[in-house]
């Protein structure tokens, strides 16, 4: 009991430390370039949290996520550019519109299962991309949207500087992580996981599978829409390629590197992959060659990603330490280690 208390205290301190680091980052970052990279990484991470809910917790591989990201970005961008709406109005509208679209997509696609679901969502993502690209009069087609305004200031807080935009994005990221961790530990989260493990079993237990799937899909799209809206006001230029399946695959990569079905995974994976991408800039062309191969290696050898692998390692270490304590020595005899192994299985 005491040790779990202690470990939760350690965790608490670690969280505080990470939080302090995130707050202090603009001041300790050696140059503005890193700040830009991290801000963009945070925006993507918000979308990856959405994907994590669908792929990690619900166990459904949706490949329409970049489409939703594009939907959020273009809705917000168009509203503020063409109607002159304030960012604080266009962001919630974009999130709501994306959620609505996702619910519609979900109603159709969750009637299918397995391979059909993956292919159908992939096709829906492509449709969204193509519509954005071809609807020239509204979206500017391949030329894109230029000159999207930065977020309007609220009272004395303006978002002109890079630092202030960093904090804005950080605030949304923290909100996302908070909501996601609450969902993960709630009954709803466990409902999602039960669907991932077995849809038939979940249905037998009285879970409304369709409703739960739609809920997860809607929440994921809501955050993806927010990420899209943040992207549009941060980058201030939108091209149709942000809705292409390439971005979906990148999100998937970020998620898998970090670790699916974990709370830290999406952030860790996104930041790490962004950092690698930026440091490999001189070999930009080879980037996807490396990442493609990496994706295969990860699903084969580390399906839990970095966070998953750390957890496994930690569990192994703890087991060893516990064994050591019980037998009074650091090297347990063979019989005891067998017993411990058996306990582990139970």
């Amino acid at each position: 009991m005491k040790s779990t208390n202690q470990s939760s205290k350690v965790k608490y301190i670690a969280y505080l430390g990470i939080f302090a680091l995130a707050i202090a980052f603009p001041y300790i970052s050696p140059n503005r370039y890193y700040l830009t990279v991290v801000t963009l990484g945070f925006i993507y991470a918000i979308a990856v949290y959405g994907l994590n809910l669908i792929v990690g917790y619900l166990g459904q591989l949706s490949l329409a996520q970049a489409g939703f990201f594009g939907m959020g970005a273009y809705t917000s961008g168009l509203l503020s550019l063409k109607l002159g709406l304030s960012f604080w109005l266009s962001l919630p509208i974009a999130a709501a519109a994306t959620t609505l679209l996702a619910l519609l997509v979900g109603l159709i696609s969750f009637r299918t299962r397995g391979h059909y679901f993956v292919i159908l969502t992939l096709c829906i993502g492509v449709i969204i991309h193509l519509v954005i690209e071809k609807w020239d009069s509204l979206t500017g087609g391949v030329r894109g949207l230029i000159g999207i305004p930065i977020p309007t200031s609220i009272g004395p807080i303006a978002f002109k500087s890079l630092e202030s935009q960093y904090y804005l994005v950080l605030a949304f990221l923290i909100l996302t992580i908070f909501v996601m961790s609450r969902i993960a530990s709630s009954l709803v989260g466990r409902t999602f996981k039960s669907i991932r493990n077995s849809e038939e079993l979940a249905a037998t237990l009285g879970i409304n599978v369709m409703k739960s799937k739609l809920l997860a899909f809607g929440i994921a799209a809501f955050f993806t829409g927010i990420a899209g809206a943040l992207f549009s006001s941060y980058i201030r230029f939108l091209g149709p390629e942000i809705a292409s399946t390439h971005l979906t695959f990148e999100f998937l990569l970020f998620l898998l590197i970090g670790g699916q079905a974990t709370i830290a995974g999406p952030l860790v994976g996104t930041l790490l992959a962004s950092a690698i991408t930026e440091s490999l800039q001189f070999m930009q062309e080879y980037r996807m060659v490396v990442f493609g191969a990496l994706l295969i290696l990860i699903v084969k050898f580390f399906p839990g990603g970095l966070v998953g692998a750390t957890k496994t390692l930690k569990a192994k270490l703890e087991k060893r330490v516990n064994q050591g304590k019980k037998s009074g020595t650091n090297l347990p005899s063979k019989g005891e280690s067998h017993a411990a192994k058996n306990r582990g299985f139970n």
Binding site: V55, V118, E285, V289, L295, V299, K300, P303
Partner: peptide, 27 residues
Amino acid sequence: PMRNSPSTNKFIAAVGAMMFLEAAARV
């Protein structure tokens, strides 16, 4: 090697192979 993995992982491996081939062709 992915024969016995869950089907989601198989998809992802296939996606990885796809990214690899396209990027390799570009390079």
